[in-house]
């Protein structure tokens, strides 16, 4: 198991390989430097190139808890950092109201506003001491009533966590600015509880599809890793790693076929690596050993998610071109 303190580049390279993540130094080096420097890694690239997977691999090879913050439009601090469990607070207050209102011994004169309210009904002090309002307030804003959200969880994790902030480009500038602060200090102040300082700086991985430009400040805080589309060789290696029982010949056919579909400009939704993997798995599960016409017809829906695309390949000419491409033959004229 790797540890951050004794990490070396060769060890990290080996661990990634052993975990089945296919990459060269163009990926390993930035990952390594980001961990060594304790800086967040911002991973950019098209869908399916393995951005999210990096965080997952890190969590496995360091045996670190993976804390994932999935970003979406409208994500705010409450959902990302913490919020008070207000239903529970309410219940607690109601309970207090029902059975309390009487100061505990020696606390009569605090003047905390615990003047007689509904609680005075049955006169005598109850068997359990009921807190004064000020204490009640402290209580309902205590640890017990706190709902930890991913960012706080990552900061307070007893073991060093991998914090995955996935698809950051889906949030807005305001959230980004907030995130920037957390990633600068690795601490937050919760007014009622005080300042929480990270026990261990988490390994932070942010991913983005570049659907919008992130702020300069945030980018400067991070190391930037751009992952390109895999070439045929890399995709083949990914399939070998990810799909047990896949025969070499079939793996090649899958890669060639997928590349043909991606290159087809009439296809609406291009399959990504994730779809190649699913396709290969399906073929193996169904015992296909060869991407012939029938195998294609029966399983193409795994990589073609759009109805129009399926219709397109229902055309015998297109299907045949695909079959030929899968076998490494040039399309018929």
């Amino acid at each position: 198991m790797l540890t951050v303190e004794s990490l070396t580049l060769p060890a990290l390279r080996e661990a990634f390989a052993a975990d089945g993540y296919v990459c060269g130094d163009e990926i390993i080096v930035p990952v390594y430097v980001s961990i060594a420097l304790g800086k967040p890694l911002l991973v950019e690239g098209q869908p399916g190139v393995g951005k999210t997977e990096i965080a997952k691999v890190l969590s496995r090879v360091f045996d670190a808890p993976l804390v994932r913050l999935q970003c979406y439009e409208g994500l705010d601090e409450n959902k990302a950092l913490y919020e008070w469990n207000y239903q529970k607070q309410l219940l607690r207050i109601q309970a207090w109201g029902a059975g309390a209102g009487r100061p505990r011994d020696g606390e009569a004169g605090v003047g905390s506003g615990s003047s007689g309210r509904s609680g005075d009904l049955d006169g005598a002090p109850g068997p359990t001491a009921v807190p004064a309002v000020s204490d009640l307030e402290a209580e309902v804003f205590s640890e017990e009533f706190l709902l930890e959200r991913p960012l706080l969880r990552a900061l307070r994790s007893r073991r060093r966590a991998v914090l995955l902030i996935d698809e950051i480009d889906r949030t807005d500038d305001e959230f980004e600015a907030f995130l920037f602060e957390i990633l600068s200090e690795f601490q937050v102040t919760i007014p009622e509880l005080g300042t929480v300082v990270a026990r261990h700086t988490p390994m932070v991985v942010l991913t983005s599809n570049r659907s919008r430009e992130l702020s300069d400040a945030l980018k400067r805080r991070c190391l930037l890793l751009y992952i390109d589309f895999p070439d045929a060789e890399k995709e083949l290696r990914i399939l070998r790693n990810k799909v047990p029982g896949l025969r070499e010949e079939l793996a090649r056919q899958v890669v060639l076929a997928v590349r043909q579909v991606r290159a087809n400009e009439r296809v609406r939704k291009k399959p990504s690596v994730a779809e190649s993997i699913d396709w290969a798995r399906t073929l193996v599960a169904l015992n296909w050993t060869e991407l012939d016409g029938e195998a294609l017809a029966r399983t193409l829906n795994v990589i073609l998610k759009h109805k129009d695309d399926l219709e397109l390949y229902a055309d015998p000419a297109e299907a045949d071109a695909l079959r030929l491409a899968a076998h490494g033959e040039p399309p018929a004229p």
């Binding site: 130094d25 080096v29 390594y32 430097v33 980001s34 060594a36 420097l37 980018k219 991070c222 190391l223």
Partner: peptide, 29 residues
């Protein structure tokens, strides 16, 4: 950060140094 990156990567492998410094210094593709 670039200085720190060089300290951890060393200077012996040119491609590694180039990749490491790029990750630290270049934020616009």
């Amino acid at each position: 950060d670039a200085v720190a990156a060089l300290r951890v990567v060393g200077l012996s492998d040119r491609a590694q140094v180039k990749t490491a410094l790029q990750a630290v210094l270049v934020k616009d593709l």
